[in-house]
Design a protein around this nucleic acid. Sequence first.
DNA 1: AATATAGTGGAGAGTACCCTCTAGAACATG
DNA 2: CATGTTCTAGAGGGTACTCTCCACTATATT
Lengths: 195, 195
Amino acid sequence: MARPPRFDTSQLLDAAVRLAAESGPSGVTMSAVAAAAGAPSGSLYHRFAGRSALLAEVWLRTVEGFQEGYFEALESSNDPRTGGRAAARHIVEWSRAHPQEAALLLYGAHDFGRDGWSDEHLRRADEGNMRVRASVAALAGALGVHGSQGLERVSLAVIDLPLSLVRRHLRAGSTLPAHAEDLAEQCTDALLAGG
Amino acid sequence: MARPPRFDTSQLLDAAVRLAAESGPSGVTMSAVAAAAGAPSGSLYHRFAGRSALLAEVWLRTVEGFQEGYFEALESSNDPRTGGRAAARHIVEWSRAHPQEAALLLYGAHDFGRDGWSDEHLRRADEGNMRVRASVAALAGALGVHGSQGLERVSLAVIDLPLSLVRRHLRAGSTLPAHAEDLAEQCTDALLAGG
DNA sequence: AATATAGTGGAGAGTACCCTCTAGAACATG
DNA sequence: CATGTTCTAGAGGGTACTCTCCACTATATT
């Protein structure tokens, strides 16, 4: 009952990811995305309410795509130390497999215009954040770590530290070295050990 | 022999820092800086060759201001472990004292338009980077750590990990908790220990 | 006082971008 | 084939920003 789309949503978001990885969120302009996808601007506005909506979708699709495997890794084992190591490894492996989307992940929701997002987009973002917090808190509990300082240390170990490793290389413009997964795992383990 | 300036360079850069901390590098427009400083746009272009030059100066002044005390901390002791801990602590202390400039530091030179910088600005950036690399390499040597993986682990310990701790809080919009310095020091030490 | 110098103040051209709007194309269904 | 629906296609208005340019101002030196 309708004309088939020539440019579907994911195709346009792919173009946006490429631009964001190259020039940051500010490089994701409506005209740049349209040009990169070979689509007219009208088609863009047919899919997305506006630039804020496009930025929100790019960000959320990327974050949710990352989190999918991340939770699995984090909860893959009964031993919390093993789960933590797997989570660290997953961050590096995922970044290696998706370098452009990893470049996005190094920014924050704020850089993708979070202040102008719709309620629905904000809800999706919150949902992911809550799930991360809950998952990390469970890990901390299993490790016997308590208090806000302990929780923070676990967060650093299984989230921020591996991300820093990725950031270090992506910022330098180079690809991740072969030993990156091992290094991330070791460093995370060192932080989880001396709780 | 000349009219005294009403708006000097550092005053304009201060305004730029405020804007960058609030809205990221893209918020640092010439008109926004002019408005924030209460200056006409002509005065801005009298000091800076253009927007790229302004962004470069903001970035470099901030990074150089941070590095000043950082090297001192890193090389403050003959014991490398102690020096590493002092460096971690310095990152957190400096960020607490200069939250807006710390927010800048969480971006990269690329986000401040590095691709369009003048040769002189690029040279200044390189000089800082080289000095950091040399200083961290010296620390790694004193620790008896060798190889690129070892060097990377030390870099993570004394640079990226403390910065991640700061990022975690600034991204959330909150200020650094009281125990942040201690936590950074402990985490850095844990990483330096199991070399 | 005269002059040179460094700076202010702001108008305005040029450009890039966001978004709207209309015309029509492609397809499914009756 | 006729009709309804989704989508393409792109022109164009409005806006924000960068940068240029020139008249004017305040000070130091002679």
